[in-house]
Protein backbone atom coordinates (compact mmCIF):
# COMPACT_ATOMS: atom_id res chain seq x y z
CA UNK A 1 0.00 0.00 0.00
CA UNK A 2 1.36 3.42 -0.95
CA UNK A 3 1.55 6.04 1.82
CA UNK A 4 0.98 9.40 0.12
CA UNK A 5 2.06 11.20 3.31
CA UNK A 6 5.57 9.81 2.77
CA UNK A 7 5.59 11.00 -0.86
CA UNK A 8 4.39 14.40 0.32
CA UNK A 9 7.22 14.56 2.89
CA UNK A 10 9.88 13.70 0.31
CA UNK A 11 8.52 16.26 -2.17
CA UNK A 12 8.35 18.83 0.63
CA UNK A 13 12.05 18.31 1.34
CA UNK A 14 12.80 19.11 -2.30
CA UNK A 15 10.64 22.24 -2.24
CA UNK A 16 12.33 23.44 0.96
CA UNK A 17 15.67 23.22 -0.85
CA UNK A 18 14.41 25.85 -3.30
CA UNK A 19 13.09 28.16 -0.60
CA UNK A 20 16.51 28.04 1.04
CA UNK A 21 18.65 28.28 -2.10
CA UNK A 22 16.86 30.19 -4.86
CA UNK A 23 20.07 30.11 -6.89
CA UNK A 24 19.01 26.55 -7.76
CA UNK A 25 16.49 28.13 -10.11
CA UNK A 26 19.44 28.95 -12.34
CA UNK A 27 20.05 25.25 -12.84
CA UNK A 28 16.36 24.81 -13.68
CA UNK A 29 16.01 27.77 -16.03
CA UNK A 30 19.40 29.07 -17.12
CA UNK A 31 20.60 26.12 -19.23
CA UNK A 32 17.25 25.49 -20.95
CA UNK A 33 16.95 29.16 -21.85
CA UNK A 34 20.52 29.26 -23.19
CA UNK A 35 19.77 26.18 -25.32
CA UNK A 36 16.57 27.76 -26.58
CA UNK A 37 18.33 30.98 -27.56
CA UNK A 38 21.09 29.13 -29.44
CA UNK A 39 18.73 26.84 -31.34
CA UNK A 40 16.10 29.52 -31.76
CA UNK A 41 18.43 31.95 -33.54
CA UNK A 42 19.94 29.13 -35.59
CA UNK A 43 16.37 28.35 -36.67
CA UNK A 44 15.64 31.95 -37.70
CA UNK A 45 18.92 32.08 -39.63
CA UNK A 46 18.08 28.85 -41.45
CA UNK A 47 14.53 30.06 -42.12
CA UNK A 48 15.86 33.07 -43.97
CA UNK A 49 18.27 31.00 -46.04
CA UNK A 50 16.19 27.99 -47.10
CA UNK A 51 13.29 27.53 -49.45
CA UNK A 52 9.81 28.50 -48.30
CA UNK A 53 8.58 24.93 -47.79
CA UNK A 54 11.41 24.01 -45.43
CA UNK A 55 11.57 27.32 -43.62
CA UNK A 56 8.14 26.76 -42.07
CA UNK A 57 8.94 23.22 -41.05
CA UNK A 58 12.30 24.01 -39.52
CA UNK A 59 10.69 25.43 -36.40
CA UNK A 60 10.67 21.81 -35.22
CA UNK A 61 14.17 22.57 -33.90
CA UNK A 62 12.60 24.81 -31.27
CA UNK A 63 10.04 22.16 -30.41
CA UNK A 64 12.88 19.65 -30.16
CA UNK A 65 14.73 21.83 -27.63
CA UNK A 66 11.61 22.07 -25.45
CA UNK A 67 10.82 18.37 -25.74
CA UNK A 68 14.41 17.38 -25.02
CA UNK A 69 14.22 19.40 -21.84
CA UNK A 70 11.18 17.40 -20.72
CA UNK A 71 13.19 14.20 -20.99
CA UNK A 72 16.31 15.69 -19.40
CA UNK A 73 14.48 17.31 -16.43
CA UNK A 74 12.51 14.19 -15.57
CA UNK A 75 15.68 12.03 -15.68
CA UNK A 76 17.51 14.57 -13.53
CA UNK A 77 14.71 14.68 -10.96
CA UNK A 78 15.18 10.99 -10.17
CA UNK A 79 18.99 10.88 -10.28
CA UNK A 80 19.72 14.18 -8.54
CA UNK A 81 17.21 13.51 -5.76
CA UNK A 82 19.31 10.57 -4.61
CA UNK A 83 22.56 12.52 -5.00
CA UNK A 84 21.20 15.38 -2.86
CA UNK A 85 21.04 12.90 0.03
CA UNK A 86 24.55 11.66 -0.72
CA UNK A 87 25.97 15.19 -0.82
CA UNK A 88 24.33 16.14 2.50
CA UNK A 89 25.20 12.79 4.17
CA UNK A 90 21.52 12.17 4.73
CA UNK A 91 21.35 8.79 2.97
CA UNK A 92 21.13 6.68 6.12
CA UNK A 93 18.47 8.90 7.70
CA UNK A 94 16.33 8.40 4.60
CA UNK A 95 16.93 4.67 4.22
CA UNK A 96 16.18 3.88 7.89
CA UNK A 97 12.93 5.84 7.66
CA UNK A 98 9.72 3.91 6.87
CA UNK A 99 9.84 4.54 3.13
CA UNK A 100 8.92 1.97 0.50
CA UNK A 101 10.85 1.98 -2.78
CA UNK A 102 7.66 2.80 -4.67
CA UNK A 103 7.06 5.83 -2.42
CA UNK A 104 10.63 7.04 -2.91
CA UNK A 105 10.26 6.74 -6.68
CA UNK A 106 6.80 8.33 -6.54
CA UNK A 107 8.33 11.39 -4.88
CA UNK A 108 11.08 11.67 -7.50
CA UNK A 109 8.50 11.33 -10.31
CA UNK A 110 6.39 14.06 -8.74
CA UNK A 111 9.44 16.30 -8.50
CA UNK A 112 10.11 15.51 -12.18
CA UNK A 113 6.61 16.65 -13.16
CA UNK A 114 7.04 19.88 -11.20
CA UNK A 115 10.46 20.64 -12.69
CA UNK A 116 9.22 19.87 -16.19
CA UNK A 117 6.04 21.92 -15.85
CA UNK A 118 8.04 24.96 -14.76
CA UNK A 119 10.71 24.82 -17.48
CA UNK A 120 8.37 23.85 -20.31
CA UNK A 121 5.98 26.69 -19.46
CA UNK A 122 8.76 29.25 -19.44
CA UNK A 123 10.45 27.89 -22.57
CA UNK A 124 7.12 27.82 -24.41
CA UNK A 125 6.42 31.45 -23.55
CA UNK A 126 9.90 32.54 -24.60
CA UNK A 127 9.78 30.57 -27.85
CA UNK A 128 6.42 32.08 -28.70
CA UNK A 129 7.61 35.61 -27.88
CA UNK A 130 10.95 35.43 -29.68
CA UNK A 131 10.38 32.97 -32.52
CA UNK A 132 6.58 32.76 -32.92
CA UNK A 133 6.77 29.03 -32.25
CA UNK A 134 3.52 27.93 -30.63
CA UNK A 135 3.89 24.59 -28.89
CA UNK A 136 0.09 24.36 -28.78
CA UNK A 137 0.17 23.90 -32.56
CA UNK A 138 0.80 20.26 -31.67
CA UNK A 139 -2.81 20.27 -30.39
CA UNK A 140 -3.86 17.45 -28.09
CA UNK A 141 -0.93 15.28 -29.22
CA UNK A 142 1.24 17.50 -27.04
CA UNK A 143 0.07 15.68 -23.90
CA UNK A 144 0.82 12.07 -24.87
CA UNK A 145 4.15 13.20 -26.35
CA UNK A 146 5.17 15.00 -23.15
CA UNK A 147 3.90 12.12 -21.04
CA UNK A 148 6.00 9.65 -23.02
CA UNK A 149 9.10 11.79 -22.59
CA UNK A 150 8.41 11.99 -18.84
CA UNK A 151 8.14 8.20 -18.69
CA UNK A 152 11.36 7.70 -20.60
CA UNK A 153 13.15 10.29 -18.44
CA UNK A 154 12.01 8.48 -15.29
CA UNK A 155 13.29 5.18 -16.71
CA UNK A 156 16.68 6.72 -17.49
CA UNK A 157 16.69 8.30 -14.03
CA UNK A 158 16.08 4.93 -12.35
CA UNK A 159 18.78 3.29 -14.48
CA UNK A 160 21.37 5.99 -13.77
CA UNK A 161 20.57 6.00 -10.02
CA UNK A 162 20.83 2.21 -9.91
CA UNK A 163 24.27 2.39 -11.54
CA UNK A 164 25.37 5.13 -9.12
CA UNK A 165 24.25 3.02 -6.14
CA UNK A 166 26.03 -0.02 -7.58
CA UNK A 167 29.30 1.69 -8.53
CA UNK A 168 29.42 4.37 -5.84
CA UNK A 169 29.92 8.14 -5.91
CA UNK A 170 32.60 7.80 -8.59
CA UNK A 171 29.74 7.12 -11.00
CA UNK A 172 27.95 10.37 -10.12
CA UNK A 173 28.67 11.78 -13.54
CA UNK A 174 26.11 9.30 -14.96
CA UNK A 175 23.40 11.50 -13.48
CA UNK A 176 24.21 14.10 -16.13
CA UNK A 177 25.75 11.96 -18.84
CA UNK A 178 23.03 9.34 -19.33
CA UNK A 179 20.60 11.48 -21.37
CA UNK A 180 23.43 12.72 -23.58
CA UNK A 181 24.60 9.15 -24.19
CA UNK A 182 21.28 8.40 -25.85
CA UNK A 183 20.82 11.83 -27.51
CA UNK A 184 22.54 10.95 -30.83
CA UNK A 185 20.24 7.93 -31.15
CA UNK A 186 17.05 9.69 -30.06
CA UNK A 187 16.75 11.70 -33.31
CA UNK A 188 16.07 14.91 -31.44
CA UNK A 189 17.19 17.29 -34.19
CA UNK A 190 17.15 15.07 -37.30
CA UNK A 191 14.91 12.34 -38.70
CA UNK A 192 15.54 8.63 -38.16
CA UNK A 193 16.12 8.17 -41.90
CA UNK A 194 19.32 10.29 -41.69
CA UNK A 195 21.04 7.70 -39.53
CA UNK A 196 23.02 4.74 -40.87
CA UNK A 197 21.17 1.43 -40.80
CA UNK A 198 22.96 0.03 -37.71
CA UNK A 199 22.07 3.17 -35.72
CA UNK A 200 18.45 3.07 -36.84
CA UNK A 201 17.98 -0.24 -35.06
CA UNK A 202 19.14 1.26 -31.80
CA UNK A 203 17.18 4.46 -32.35
CA UNK A 204 13.96 2.62 -33.07
CA UNK A 205 14.26 0.90 -29.70
CA UNK A 206 14.11 4.23 -27.85
CA UNK A 207 10.66 5.68 -27.02
CA UNK A 208 12.05 9.21 -27.42
CA UNK A 209 12.83 8.59 -31.10
CA UNK A 210 9.14 7.93 -31.81
CA UNK A 211 8.11 11.08 -29.95
CA UNK A 212 10.50 13.31 -31.90
CA UNK A 213 9.56 11.61 -35.17
CA UNK A 214 5.89 12.13 -34.30
CA UNK A 215 6.40 15.78 -33.45
CA UNK A 216 8.09 16.44 -36.78
CA UNK A 217 5.32 14.58 -38.59
CA UNK A 218 2.60 16.74 -37.01
CA UNK A 219 4.44 19.96 -37.78
CA UNK A 220 4.96 18.84 -41.39
CA UNK A 221 1.63 17.25 -42.24
CA UNK A 222 -0.70 18.36 -39.45
CA UNK A 223 -1.73 14.74 -38.92
CA UNK A 224 -1.19 12.72 -35.76
CA UNK A 225 1.12 9.75 -36.38
CA UNK A 226 -0.68 7.13 -34.28
CA UNK A 227 1.98 4.52 -35.02
CA UNK A 228 4.65 6.65 -33.37
CA UNK A 229 2.50 7.06 -30.27
CA UNK A 230 1.79 3.35 -30.02
CA UNK A 231 5.49 2.53 -30.32
CA UNK A 232 6.41 5.15 -27.74
CA UNK A 233 3.86 3.86 -25.20
CA UNK A 234 4.79 0.22 -25.82
CA UNK A 235 8.51 0.81 -25.48
CA UNK A 236 8.00 2.98 -22.40
CA UNK A 237 6.03 0.21 -20.71
CA UNK A 238 9.00 -2.09 -21.26
CA UNK A 239 11.57 0.51 -20.15
CA UNK A 240 9.62 1.42 -16.99
CA UNK A 241 9.24 -2.24 -16.05
CA UNK A 242 12.92 -2.98 -16.72
CA UNK A 243 14.25 0.15 -15.01
CA UNK A 244 11.95 -0.38 -12.00
CA UNK A 245 13.16 -3.96 -11.66
CA UNK A 246 16.81 -2.86 -11.96
CA UNK A 247 16.34 -0.13 -9.32
CA UNK A 248 14.69 -2.55 -6.87
CA UNK A 249 17.28 -5.25 -7.57
CA UNK A 250 20.22 -2.89 -7.04
CA UNK A 251 18.73 -1.66 -3.74
CA UNK A 252 18.52 -5.29 -2.63
CA UNK A 253 22.12 -5.89 -3.70
CA UNK A 254 23.07 -2.68 -1.85
CA UNK A 255 21.54 -4.13 1.32
CA UNK A 256 23.48 -7.35 0.83
CA UNK A 257 26.84 -5.74 0.02
CA UNK A 258 26.55 -2.74 2.35
CA UNK A 259 26.64 -0.21 -0.50
CA UNK A 260 24.23 2.24 1.15
CA UNK A 261 26.34 2.48 4.28
CA UNK A 262 29.40 3.16 2.13
CA UNK A 263 27.65 6.26 0.79
CA UNK A 264 27.21 7.47 4.36
CA UNK A 265 30.92 7.21 5.06
CA UNK A 266 32.07 9.06 1.93
Amino acid sequence: MINFGVIHALVLRYLYLFTRTPIRLIELLFWPIVQLLVWGYLTTYLQRNTDAEFSGFITFLIGAVIFWDVLFRSQQAVAIYFLEDVWTRNVLNVFVAPIRTVEYLGATFTVGIMRTALTVTILSLISYGLYHFNILSLHWALFPFVFNLLLFGWSLGMISTALIVRWGPAAETLAWATPFLIQPFACVFYPLSELPAWMQWISASLPATHVFEGMRAILKTGELPVTNLVWAFGLNAAYMAGAGWLFGHVLKVARIKGLLTKFASQ
Binding site: R13, Y16, L17, T88, N90, V91, N93, V96, A264
Partner: peptide
Protein backbone atom coordinates in the same frame (compact mmCIF):
# COMPACT_ATOMS: atom_id res chain seq x y z
CA UNK B 1 18.14 6.29 14.49
CA UNK B 2 20.66 8.87 15.65
CA UNK B 3 24.27 8.91 14.54
CA UNK B 4 27.18 11.27 14.79
CA UNK B 5 28.15 10.20 11.30
CA UNK B 6 25.09 11.35 9.40
CA UNK B 7 23.82 14.87 8.79
CA UNK B 8 20.42 16.31 8.21
CA UNK B 9 20.27 18.37 4.99
CA UNK B 10 22.50 21.31 5.85
CA UNK B 11 20.73 23.84 3.64
CA UNK B 12 17.34 23.43 5.32
CA UNK B 13 16.27 25.26 8.45
Amino acid sequence: FCSAYTNLPSNLR
